[in-house]
Each structure stands twice: as C-alpha cells, then as structure tokens.
C-alpha cells in the first residue's frame, strides 16, 4: 500500500537548512494498522504529512497504492487526498457551523462521492445515529472525534491517517475511540496509520514504528 524510499525532507529556515527527515524507508501493507511513535521534533508529523500528500518530499520516492505520488502537482495531490486518504486530527477539525452529518458529507464532497445515506451509515457505525443534526459545539470531545472518524471512512479511502487521535481526549474516551478504530480495521480491513505519544494506544496496532531525528530506528534506540 505504502512504499517510501529514501524520503528526505529539508526545510529552509532563513539561510539555515533543517533536515527533518533524513532518509526514511518504510513499507506498509494493505490492511495493516501501524503506529508511529517518537519524541516531539523527531519528524513523525512531517512523515505523516508526506504520506498524507499534504507535503512533498525534498527527495526520495513515495508509492501510494501502486502509484508514484512524490512528484505530483499540488492539484493532483489534492485529488489523491480527496479520493484515497481519510484524515483524523488531534483537534478534530470539524467545521463548527455545520451539523455532524454535513461535516461527514463535506468529506465525501471533494471525493465526488456525495451520498447522504452513506454519510448516515458512517455516523451510525461510530454510534452517533441520534446526533447527526448536532453541531460540533453540542458534542463532547469523544463524540466530535467519532464524527471525524465517520468523515474519514464515509468516502471509502484506501488509507486512514490519524495524528494523535486521542491526544485531546480523556483516557476513557481515548480507549473507546481506539475500540471503534480497531473494530473498523478488523471489520473492513482498513489500512490505518497513526502517530501517537501513548504506548497504550500503540498497543492496539499490529506494528509500531519508531522515529528519531528523522530516521526510523529500533525500539531499543528510543
């Protein structure tokens, strides 16, 4: 599903070059549920952004679903994001003036897969069938994140990326959320990649990748 070869990402900070990723090689199979762990500033978020086609690597190649995407234009990357990738963010990132259902439909819209019935099904799946007309401000943090999950899965993406999905939740909601995610993973065979600080969360995943100073390292090196 995902093949990264020698991915390097360099940011320019004024005249100084900041090498955030220094040659990442990584392969993730279809249907895998993988956690990425590492300290702040290790480069894990940058890695997730590149995998999520929000950012382009400075060098190296990235194959997503058999297609090389590391050299695509912004416009083509937007198309890939819409069609193949579902995001779940730490801060939920729902649009505050839209209902839960409208937020889920927004996820389908840019994939040209608008379908209210399926949007409802996705919300039902995360246990929010009775909350579809609520706005984000009327939902708890855990419920908001479940809306975000519904938004990510309702367009049937090839890949779901989650950046600290439980970072803003209490431990109970966090575990509940991970229950839903791993349930979806088993039931639908979703490919799931998540960045987390929390080893308890990482335990839900089949595999954990450790990132340090822009490189993938063994668990012992952390």
């Amino acid at each position: 599903m995902i093949q990264l070869q020698d991915i390097v990402k360099v940011y320019l900070l004024g005249k100084r070059q900041l090498e955030v990723l220094r040659g990442i090689n990584l392969s993730i199979e279809k249907g895998e549920m993988v956690a990425i762990m590492g300290a702040s500033g290790s480069g894990k978020t940058t890695l997730l952004n590149i995998i999520g086609c929000l950012d382009k690597p400075t060098s190296g190649t990235y194959y997503l679903d058999g297609k090389e995407v590391s050299r695509l234009s912004n416009r083509e990357l937007a198309g890939i994001r819409g069609q193949k990738i579902g995001f779940i963010f730490q801060t939920f990132n729902l649009l505050s003036y839209m209902s839960a259902l409208a937020n889920v439909e927004l996820g389908q819209r840019y994939a040209d897969k608008r379908n209210s019935h399926r949007a409802f099904e996705a919300l039902e799946k995360v246990g929010l069938a009775d909350r579809i007309h609520h706005r984000p401000s009327e939902l708890s943090g855990g419920e908001q994140q479940r809306v975000a999950i519904a938004r990510a899965i309702s367009k049937d993406p090839a890949l779901i990326l989650a950046d600290e999905p439980t970072g803003n939740l209490d431990s109970h909601s966090g575990e509940e959320l991970m229950g839903i995610l791993s349930g979806l993973h088993k039931e639908r065979g979703l490919t799931l990649l998540m960045v987390t600080h929390d080893p308890k969360i990482a335990r839900y995943c089949q595999r954990t990748i450790y990132v340090k100073d822009g490189l993938i390292v063994n668990e012992d090196a952390i």
Partner: peptide, 16 residues
C-alpha cells in the same frame, strides 16, 4: 484559514 486548511486536507483543490 483553518476551515480552508480542513477543506484542503479533505481534498479541495485550489479552484474549489
């Protein structure tokens, strides 16, 4: 700005 970021992450193109 944040809304624009969300829309872009969801796949909105520049012209959208």
């Amino acid at each position: 700005t944040r809304e624009i970021g969300i829309r872009k992450a969801l796949g909105a193109r520049e012209r959208d």
